[in-house]
Amino acid sequence: MRLRRRWPASRRSSAPSRSRRAEGRSCAHRTPSGCHVNTRGACCLHGNKRDRANSAHHRRQRRNRPRPGRSVPESRTPRHDHRARPQRLAAAAEELPGLETFASDIGSARGREELAAHAQHVMPDLDVVISNAGIQRRVGIAADDAPWAEVQNELDILLAGPVHLSRLLTPQLLGHGRPSVYVNVTSGGAFQPMPFAPLYSAAKAALHSYTVNLRHALRATPCRVVELIPPAVATQLAGPGPNHGADPEEFCDTVFPLLDGSHPEVGFGPTAQPDFIERLAAENRAFEAASTRFAVPLYRPDGSVENLH
């Protein structure tokens, strides 16, 4: 999970993409103004909307010099060296005075609870969450003979992690009564099953469904729920080796200005085409029509929950 808020222009730097090993221990660091960046499980939390960062879900670390509009630096860890990421964060903390680090485990309930408790303690003004933990096992169903622990790990990172974090952090987003934004990152694969990564696309489809329901539950509150739907982006999500897809810099520069809560869904390339947008609109209309079949309690603007009795 990654926690971040925008730095002063003189101290911003670009950040790289996530990798297949965006799992296990997560590392967060904080700017002097209160921002945290947790880079092992990939989730961004911002403490002040005015200082919202272009947090780099897919950004490559190809620029060494700080530049206005860039975010707190983040390290990318190859899957064969998951220990390198905390070391790189330590180096970043040394380079940027005032930076603090925090380690957590996005794949475990305890790790997520510890991270949420830490955020609640040091970021009481939290108003933006971007949950984009990712891992992708590229193996077809018939060929997948991996131990179940490896399969469960993928499910924990892609689905259990984002769902659990929303439960942990939503009360904090609502507690201060100010506008806030919760962003879940799904995938074009949520809408087009991928035989080469069946569990990934299934988990992202489930997260898409959950995000629609989360938006419904928060509809009467100042918290807006956004679904970021990337197509293939040229990162190391599936591990080292040749990458394909959109340029990470172009992707980030295009989508992050749109993550302000004014767009329920944000796509790029094929997931921003008129036919895809109409598909989402039709699905949302069908959801709205069906959402009244059974009464369910929703959040009130003050963060309390409706009592239907």
Rank of each mutant, 00 (worst) to 15 (best):
P297Q: 06
D156T: 13
F191A: 05
M123T: 05
Q236V: 09
A15D: 08
P124F: 01
V226G: 00
S291R: 06
T221W: 00
D145F: 10
L259I: 00
A217P: 13
R88N: 14
T235R: 01
L298E: 13
E74H: 08
A92H: 13
A91V: 03
S180W: 03
V185K: 01
W7C: 14
L89Y: 02
F276S: 13
S201R: 10
G189M: 04
L174Y: 01
A281I: 03
I106Q: 11
G161R: 08
H80V: 15
G134I: 01
L96F: 07
F268Q: 00
E288N: 10
E74F: 07
E114C: 09
S108A: 04
S209W: 09
D105W: 04
R88S: 14
R18L: 12
L99H: 09
R224L: 06
T271L: 12
A42G: 11
P242M: 03
A160F: 12
H29A: 10
P179D: 04
A205N: 03
A109T: 11
T235G: 02
S14D: 14
N132R: 00
A238S: 12
T292R: 07
L308D: 10
P179Y: 08
A92Y: 10
G188E: 03
D275E: 11
L228H: 00
N184I: 00
G140W: 01
F294P: 11
N54W: 12
N284Q: 14
W7P: 15
D127M: 06
R76P: 13
G47L: 01
K204G: 02
R52S: 07
Y210R: 09
H309I: 12
R62G: 10
R50C: 03
P264S: 02
D105M: 11
P230A: 02
H118K: 04
R219E: 11
S13H: 13
G188M: 06
A146F: 07
G98I: 02
D125S: 02
G41T: 14
A92L: 06
I141E: 04
G177T: 01
A232Q: 15
A109P: 10
L96R: 05
Q87P: 04
H57C: 06
S304C: 09
L158P: 04
H58E: 09
A90W: 04
V233E: 00
R67A: 15
L174P: 02
P264V: 00
V185D: 01
Q273R: 14
N64T: 15
E95C: 06
H164R: 15
S17R: 05
V37R: 11
H216K: 10
F196A: 04
W148N: 11
L165G: 01
P162C: 06
E94A: 05
G47C: 09
